[in-house]
Nucleic acid binder design. Sequence first.
DNA 1: ACCTGAACACCGTTCAAGT
DNA 2: ACCTGAACACCGTTCAAGT
Lengths: 214, 214
Amino acid sequence: MAKCESDVSPRSTPRRSYHHGRLREALVKATVELIEARGLDSVSLREVAKLAGVSSAAPFRHFPSRLALLTAVAEEAQDRLIQQIEQSLAAVEGQNALQRFRAIGRGFLLWAITNPTHFQVISNRHIITYETSSLRGRNDQIRRQMSELMVEAAAQNLLRPGDVSAHEIGARALVYGLARMYVDGQFPSWGVSQPNPLDVCNAVFDQFIASISV
Amino acid sequence: MAKCESDVSPRSTPRRSYHHGRLREALVKATVELIEARGLDSVSLREVAKLAGVSSAAPFRHFPSRLALLTAVAEEAQDRLIQQIEQSLAAVEGQNALQRFRAIGRGFLLWAITNPTHFQVISNRHIITYETSSLRGRNDQIRRQMSELMVEAAAQNLLRPGDVSAHEIGARALVYGLARMYVDGQFPSWGVSQPNPLDVCNAVFDQFIASISV
DNA sequence: ACCTGAACACCGTTCAAGT
DNA sequence: ACCTGAACACCGTTCAAGT
C-alpha cells in the first residue's frame, strides 16, 4: 500500500522531558490534522503517535483503542456543535417556535461546513463508539429540543397541515443530507457553482422552512 | 484486534478443479456477504479470498486493488438503482413531471432500504474510485433526468413559487439523508417505531413533495 | 491463463522493561 | 505515573514459482 507524501511532519522540537505533559490533547489534535491532510482512512494510531512525537504504544496510556481516540474527536465535534446551536438560538431569542427550529438547522449547517473533519468523524458511527459514550445522550437532547419546538410551532398554527413528525424528520434529513453532500464533495457535480456552499445550504433549508410554514 | 465470530464460512465443497471459473463474480458476492455479516470496516481481501475458497493473492488476478473490488460492488449497486428507478418511472408513465420526479425519489428510497449494503458501499466515496469508473457518468445521468423533470414541472406551474434548483437539491438531500439515517441506524433513536421504515421514508418524502407543489 | 506461497511493509494492540 | 521496544496476529500488495 503506497503512502502518499504530505505536509504533516512530526514535532520538530523534540520533547525536553520524558513525560509529554498534555499527550491526550496532543493526540486528538494530531488526529484531526492527519484527517485534514490525508483523509479519514489513512489515520493510523502509529502515525498519530509519530506526529505527537511519542512511540506507537504511548497512545494506549490515554485511549484504550483506536475507536476511543476517534470517539474523543467526536466528542470535541459535539461540543462545537452544541456551542454553535446555542449561539444560533441566542440570536433568535424571543422569536416564534418555527424561527427557533430554523435556527437549530442553520446552526447545524454552519457547524458542519466550518468543521467538515469533525462532522465526518461524528457522523461515521462505524469508527466511534456512539452508544456507550456521552454522544448519544447529548444528541438525544438536541433531538428533544427540536421535537418540542415543532410541537409548539404546530400548536401556534405556524405550520401547514400535515404530519408534524414528518415535518421534523424531513427537516433533519434535509439538513443532514446537505451537510453530507458537501463533505462528500457532491456539490460540484450538482452544478452548485455558487462561491459559498453555506449560502446554498441555507437557501435550500430556508425554502424548505418556508414551504412547510403557512 | 479481536475478530468476532460469525456465520460466514468458506466454501464447504472444495473446488474440484484448480481453476475457479467464475472467481470474479464469486469475490463480489463474498464481499457483499462479508459486509452484511460483519460490517464494512471488517472487510479484508484476505477474508474475502478465504470465503471464496482461494488464496489471498488470487483476487489480484481480477482486481488491481481492494478499491477496485469495492468499486465492482458499487457498480452492482448502481445497476440495481437504475433498474429500480426505471421500474418506478414505468409505473407512472404518462403522469405529470412532478409525479415522475417523485417516482425517482421513491425508487431511490426503495432501493436503498432493500439494498442497505450496496447503498453503504456506493455512498462511501472513500472506499471506491468514483471518478474514474462508470459510476460518475451514470449518476450524472440520473441527476440530469431529475433536473429536466423539475424544470418541466416548473414550466407547467406544478410548483409553488421559489427557486427551482433549491427544490431539486432539497429533494435530493432529503431522500439521501433519509436513506443514510436508516442505514446508520438512526431511526430507532428518532422515535420512528413504525414497523416498516420504508413507509416512514415514503411518508416524509411525499409530504415534502406535497409542500412544494401548488 | 490462472492460482499459490512466501515475502514486504504496514497496521492495532499487548506487555515486560525502562525512567 | 508515564513512556519505550519488541512482539503478536493481522492487513494490502507483489512476485517467483507452480499447474
